[in-house]
Design a binder for these strands. Sequence first.
DNA 1: TGTATTATTATGTCTGCACATAATAAACTG
DNA 2: CAGTTTATTATGTGCAGACATAATAATACA
Lengths: 230, 230
Amino acid sequence: MSHTSYRTIQTEVLRRIRTRVWQPGQIIPSEVDLAVEFNCARATINRALRELAETGIIDRRRKAGTRVSLNPVRKATLDIPMTRIEIEARGLTYGYKMLAKNNIPAPEDVTVRMNLVPLQPLLHVKCLHLADGKPHVFEDRWINPNAVSNVFTAPFETVSPNEWLLQNVPISGGDIVLTAEPATVGDAAALGIPKGTALFVAERRTFIGTDTITFVRLAYAPGYRMTTHI
Amino acid sequence: MSHTSYRTIQTEVLRRIRTRVWQPGQIIPSEVDLAVEFNCARATINRALRELAETGIIDRRRKAGTRVSLNPVRKATLDIPMTRIEIEARGLTYGYKMLAKNNIPAPEDVTVRMNLVPLQPLLHVKCLHLADGKPHVFEDRWINPNAVSNVFTAPFETVSPNEWLLQNVPISGGDIVLTAEPATVGDAAALGIPKGTALFVAERRTFIGTDTITFVRLAYAPGYRMTTHI
DNA sequence: TGTATTATTATGTCTGCACATAATAAACTG
DNA sequence: CAGTTTATTATGTGCAGACATAATAATACA
């Protein structure tokens, strides 16, 4: 066996798990043993298994060894592109319209989520992303000017906060909450749909260090599908 | 600098990207150069950058080199646990109730999605997962008996298909579609909510090789939040 | 001048070795 | 025997070197 790549090993390991040669909860041979079996370096086995562990298929612990996951928590990867790119990737024409821009004290539910003091003034931008002229997603965003000093120079009349922030603010961490909600009056007006329509909603918080940069609620027009694969 | 781990390098690379020392679209020094700068092996730089590339922060291409992503497609990881585990992890009591089980010809929308011939008999199971006695998610599942020969022996009266399949069927892959839908009559009856309520719905297909094992529609009770972080 | 061929180069992967570290098992001790 | 200390061990990480491969740049050629 000459060409023993880490991918070959992954395939074989997956086959053994699928065919129950190695059963859920069971320990599998050590890296050293597998390296002997596959006639390769331990580093190669290590890489193969490390990547599989990242997907949740196997569990690894020092000294305890590697075992097939008992409670398979599969991990799927969601791609979070810029909205413009997402629309253009579907072959549709992207359109953008700013609906409102204010620098106002944020309501409490926003300041709580952003971990800021109540009534702190934040930049509030509402806008609409269009696909082939039709409303695609309604963006309702709060931006912390203290974390993004030059935000007042941003041309949100022509560039979406989504895009401007991605291009102008240092990349950092965040979290995302996906829910289904009935369309509010504001959603309904922006998207041109009846109030109460079931909407796919994503709420995202973005941090830099411990500061919350921005909080955004994205209400997608009916029919939106977020897809991923395992 | 003695302790130059790949994590240290990742942190520093991220810092340079955040602080615009390396700007979006710009090429960054080669692995060899960075190895010299950080006084470590190229393999260490390689690992640091390879992992960052997996998150979409940088783009790497042979010969062309490594550059900071111009259109950052962030990648978030969704955990897909067994429903029982998901509920118990929140400290709630898990409950399960089978609502129906039939071996019937599947409707066309199901056979299409499962890539099967029309009207093929499939095992249809409807059930409810409860959290602290309250409906949590309504599971409407179709199982291909040809791909899961022993499915008729499965005790779906007491164990959910979700759980039984994960424990008993070798899975090779699948895809997930997340949407928001108004509750159907069936959803409403199962979950005890008004028809038309906005529901978070996940549709999952699971494959073994090219065969579709199962197609499931999971309609979550109002208030369900799917969370992830970047 | 446009096209085909041939370097060149940065990343991709593998090896063999070394030491670090966390978690367990074994030994020890009061 | 319970509790603590001390091996032991599988994985985690790092290094130096080698060859593979894809993509570009340079060159040769028609």
